[in-house]
Amino acid sequence: MTDTAAAPAQVPLVDYLVLGDRPHLVAHQCTSCGARFFDRRNACAGCFGTSFEPAEVATEGEVRAFTIVTFAAPGVPVPFVSAIVDCGGTSVRGNIINTEPDPEHVKLGMQVRLATFSLGTDDNGTEAIGFGFEPA
């Protein structure tokens, strides 16, 4: 359990987002074949190797696919742009942020870079930080 008295000022939305001066994503990389996974695996889905090491994911990439979601599950604010970004060979899913969510501003092949945003502060005064991609 977290000691609330020593709660950090910020927490990442997900554990594969590393905060600090230079926010970036980190993956579990298979030491045999190089496949990268954002969640834990017992064996590599590609080669069944069982040894993994942390690997930093490039923070710049290219939009390989996107959609502009205008109708979502209850509680999910719309519109938002969901995209698949090729970050130097590692595919990352994230929202395209800091630009208008329309097909005039979001394009296939667009160059983007990782950016963070605040989800707000909880009752302990801790701020949650999420990530997305903004036009580079």
Binding site: L13, V14, F38, R40, G75, F80, N95, L119, N124
Partner: peptide
């Protein structure tokens, strides 16, 4: 309270925040 849970240690729902 932001409390990590699940496979990605998410502190909040991710649908709509990390894609769809």
């Amino acid at each position: 309270v932001w409390e990590p849970s699940g496979r990605f240690g998410a502190v909040a729902p991710t649908d709509g925040r990390i894609g769809t």
